[in-house]
Every structure is written in structure tokens, then in C-alpha cells.
Design a protein around this nucleic acid. Structure first.
Lengths: 161, 161
DNA sequence: ATAATATAGGACTATATTAGTCCAATATAA
DNA sequence: TTATATTGGACTAATATAGTCCTATATTAT
């Protein structure tokens, strides 16, 4: 489905939340879980991944916690995807025996490389700061819809299957 | 992983092969399977999907088979992905109870919409004809490498995990 | 020192998705 | 009527994802 996984979505929510923290203040995982309404074990898991990949800094012990390692302007969507899903990848060659090398029709790999690069280029142009502070009309329309009894889903099926 | 699935890869191989067919000639599934070195049941399944989604035309009976419904110039990578994986999608909202609507931090959906649109824009610029006839240096280097005993993999890990 | 707090690392289960195969029905042409 | 070939859908197996939990380590305050 070329989908963005739930964990990536959660991880992005966490990053957006950390980005909104004041200054260099450290937020414990429990705090992040409460604010994002995500389950604590999941938040812990994601913060560990984000830390290991250098998007987030951590400190242990009392008053320990997490904060962004860099300013939101300096974190790209490409990095977030790389960290949470691994780099954009294409499937392994269907011919492990090396037959692929001799198969003139098997020129598809080249094509998917182009496609991967195109996606990557697009992701490099989007930064974490673009993910916070969404345009004003969006939350507004959102509120109106939810008051009318509809259940708008920002995430679900935004473009999808 | 934001990966392109094997079936999508196979499907693309099939489309590329159909694109190379002479004129309006119909190719039976068995023929396509042989040429692409893919398993027949898989090829049959994919051709059915491609036909149902209008990328391929079919005819039954003796001398029946499949062919592209349009010229390779008029089939985009976006269509191929839509057909084989469904549209680029983001995860469903984590709060099905509607809490998401009231949650100021839950502004991530908007962000992933932007990302999906960026990916889609990139995919609209790539056509099936771009996937055939790869640049000449590619197959050449390819052949040299395979002769030297290496096993270059066009597909595997082209960009990733 | 000791207790309390909080992250680090990794194992583990459950669930969902993907990949792959197969069968019965339908249409076409010789 | 027979042979060919697609259509539609069911089904299993393999893999990936989501989510939880446990133990170890580091830090701070008392």
C-alpha cells in the first residue's frame, strides 16, 4: 500500500510534541504519553528509536527525559521516515541466482530507483517545523465538522485505500 | 518501511514486458510468466488486477491474452502504484472515539497529507515508458559486473533497508 | 549508601498484511 | 464439442507490524 505505518505516525506525533516543548526542557516518556494520548510502552519504544537515531536526546535519572536533538527546522521528513521505517526501499531481486543479470526484461530495478529518489527528494523538502503549526483553516474546519456530529478523521484515508 | 511490495515490482515487470510486445498482439499469461520468469499463478493474479483497473486489456479463448490498454507514455507510476498497492495512504487516526478532533497536538494528519501529495506528484511525473529502455550505461556496467563474478542486484536494497 | 526516578536494550506475543496457490465458472474460437 | 484462456474468489503459508513487558543501567536527592 506504500503506506506510512502507525508507528511512524505516532513517532511523528511525538516529535511534534517535543518540538512544542519550551527551550531545552526534558520531557519524560510518561509526560509525552499523556500529552499525545498514546500508550506508554509504545511511546517508550519510539523514543528509544528516535534517540538511537540522533533525532532526540535523552538523559537518565530524576528529571531526566527527552528533547529534540536539533531545531525543528533542521529535521526533515526524510530523516523521520528513515528512522521509523528505514529508507524507502524496493523489493529484493526476484532472481537470487543471478539470472536477473542476464535478463534483458529485468530493467525494472532501475526504474524503482528513480521512483525512490523522487520520493526521497520530496521528503527532503519537508521539515518538522512544517508539521507543526498547520494552516489555520484546517483545525477550524475540523472543529466545525466534529461539532456537527461527523467524525472527521485527519489521519484515516487521507488519500487512501 | 514505506516499501514497494514484491507484487508491485512483479506487476511492473509485467507491464514493461507488455509494453515491449509488438503492436496490438495479445500475450497469454503463460507467455508473460515465461518471459518474466515469474510463477504463473502470480502472473495470472496480477494480470487480473491490472485488467480490472484498466491498465491492461484482455480477451478470452483461443489466441486470447493481455495487452496494454494504453500506450506506455500514457501510464504513470502513480497509476501503477494505485492499482497494485492502493493509493499512498497514511495510518488511521489513533483515536477512533473522536478524541482526535479535540486534540490540539494531533495536527499530524495534515502533515502526512502534504507528504502523500508530494509523493504522488513525484509519481505522476514518471511514466511506463520511462521504465522501459533504461539508459545504455546501466545494462553495460551491469554485464561487466556480473562477468567479474559479482552479483549486482538491481532491485535489492537500491536505497535501503 | 540507599531509594527513587527514568532511560536502554532486548525478548516476546498477538495481530495484520502480503505472497502465493488453487479451483470452479465463463467466454471464445476452431 | 473440444481446447484454450480469462474471471472471480477462496484459501494457506510466510512475513511484517504493533504492542507489551522484563531486566539492567545511569542519575539525582536524601
Amino acid at each position: 500500500m506504500l503506506r506510512i505505518s502507525k508507528l511512524t505516525d505516532y513517532g511523528t506525533m511525538i516529535l511534534v510534541h517535543l518540538a512544542s516543548a519550551k527551550d531545552k526542557h526534558l520531557l519524560p516518556a510518561s509526560d509525552v504519553a499523556e500529552s499525545t494520548h498514546l500508550a506508554l510502552p509504545t511511546v517508550q519504544k519510539l523514543l528509544k528509536i528516535l534517540t538511537k537515531n540522533g533525532l532526540v536526546e535523552s538523559a537518565r535519572g530524576t528529571d531526566g527525559g527527552y528533547r529534540l536533538a536539533r531545531a525543528p527546522e533542521q529535521i526533515t521528513a526524510a530523516e523521520i521516515l528513515d528512522t521509523l521505517e528505514g529508507p524507502v526501499a524496493i523489493t529484493e531481486c526476484s532472481h537470487d541466482d543471478g539470472h536477473c543479470d542476464l535478463e534483458p526484461n529485468c530493467q525494472v530495478g532501475n526504474a524503482w530507483q528513480k521512483i525512490s529518489l523522487a520520493i526521497r527528494a520530496a521528503m527532503n523538502d519537508i521539515r518538522l517545523c512544517d508539521l507543526q503549526n498547520p494552516p489555520m483553516e484546517f483545525p477550524l474546519r475540523h472543529t466545525i465538522l466534529s461539532k456537527s456530529g461527523h467524525k472527521p478523521r485527519l489521519h484515516k484515508q487521507a488519500l487512501g485505500k
